[in-house]
């Protein structure tokens, strides 16, 4: 019994100290952000590898998620004669939930894991250490640009995802299922609110972008400098980011729409 309690205590303390270290890490990384004003090229290069290279998966997933939503939604709505509301259904699901959340999950798998592995390997091969010895602060040179690039890329990716999802639904609904495109857009425009739906989705994806990038760079930086350590850290990034995104999504949804 005492063993059990001791184990709970130990793991609680462990998580707390991890959280503490992660916060301290974040603080140092944020302190490195102002110096990036002088080096926009660093951020640009990271937006390329985080954002641009994630485009394909976002474009494909967004279009197909929208198309499938339209198919499924149509089959349900047509029973109630409400197939004209298909646009509303798809747009609200994408803007409020699926856009930010699915983008963040894909981001964790595509960009987050790559970030962790890259930084973890830089640590393992002593590149971070040697940078430090060259009087170049890795927090500023390596961590801060990646954090910022993730934060910038996520809302852009989510917007592209949602927009293409709606276009996918349009092609399925209006193109294949033969709905009239007047009510499709008209009802959508009447029910979708710019601030409540579009902006809240953007706020969600900003939060997710921040958290996902933070977890990814922290796990990389904190990785045990061995091959197993890096692989464990990469797995942790994907798992923790997914859990954090889903948990935060619940909290944010409750705050925004509750």
């Amino acid at each position: 019994m005492t063993d059990f309690l001791a184990r709970i205590g130990r793991s609680t303390l462990g998580s707390l100290s991890r959280l503490g270290r992660a916060s301290l890490f974040l603080w140092h990384a944020l302190a490195g952000l102002p110096s990036l004003v002088l080096r926009p090229g660093l951020v640009l290069a990271q937006i390329y590898s985080i954002g641009v290279l994630s485009l394909i998966i976002i474009v494909v997933s967004g279009t197909f998620v929208g198309a499938v939503l339209a198919l499924q939604g149509y089959n349900t709505l047509v029973n109630f004669g409400a197939q004209d509301s298909l646009g509303v259904l798809v747009a609200l699901s994408l803007l409020r939930e699926l856009g930010p959340v699915v983008t963040a999950l894909l981001f964790a798998g595509r960009a987050g894991s790559a970030l962790t592995a890259e930084i973890g390997l830089m640590k393992t091969t002593e590149q971070l250490s040697s940078m430090e010895m060259m009087a170049v602060d890795p927090m500023r040179r390596v961590i801060a640009p990646r954090l910022l690039a993730g934060f910038i890329s996520m809302p852009l990716l989510a917007a592209i995802f949602s927009f293409l999802g709606i276009m996918g639904a349009y092609f399925v609904g209006v193109g294949a299922l033969g709905l009239d495109d007047g009510p499709f857009w008209g009802q959508m425009q009447a029910s979708v609110d710019f601030r409540d739906d579009v902006m809240n989705g953007v706020i969600k994806s900003l939060v997710f972008g921040f958290v996902a990038s933070w977890i990814a760079v922290y796990e990389g930086y904190d990785a045990e400098p061995t091959s197993e350590g890096v692989s464990r850290a990469t797995t942790r990034t994907v798992v923790h980011t997914s859990l954090a995104v889903l948990g935060l999504d619940f909290v944010l949804t409750a705050l925004m729409f509750g």
Binding site: L121, T125, E126, Q127, S129, S130
Partner: peptide
């Protein structure tokens, strides 16, 4: 560094 630690 022993490994050289070049930026790969």
């Amino acid at each position: 560094f022993q490994s050289g630690a070049l930026f790969t």
